[in-house]
């Protein structure tokens, strides 16, 4: 059941992925993802009826801990990597 990756689908994936491809990248990306899906479709040969999906390999239980602060205030260290900052805060474009 190969899915066609067309311009419309590519736009949709761009929205989901927060990516904006250049005009010259678009055709090749459609083809590449299309080829990968065609290849991935091989899995359809496998009968997985009634099989439980396996997410975690090692059986585990939820890990609980006290909500205690263990680190120091590292605000300056965190902010050091920000591409734009002002008065100890991140600067982002206007959102509303």
């Amino acid at each position: 059941m190969s899915v066609l990756i067309d311009e419309k689908m590519l736009d949709h994936l761009g929205v989901l992925s927060k990516l904006e491809l250049k005009e010259e990248e678009r055709k090749k990306t459609c083809e590449d993802i299309g080829d990968m899906l065609k290849y991935i479709d091989k899995l359809n040969e496998l009968d997985t009826e009634g099989v439980d999906p396996l997410v975690q390999i090692i059986p585990m239980e939820n890990v609980f801990r006290q909500d205690k602060i263990s680190n120091k205030n590292e605000k300056d260290k965190m902010l050091a990597n920000a591409p734009q900052k002002k008065d100890g805060q991140y600067v982002v474009p206007r959102t509303i």
Partner: peptide
């Protein structure tokens, strides 16, 4: 990386 992110989104 972009190709795999988009495949992942799909």
């Amino acid at each position: 990386v972009k190709r795999r992110i988009m495949l992942g989104s799909f």
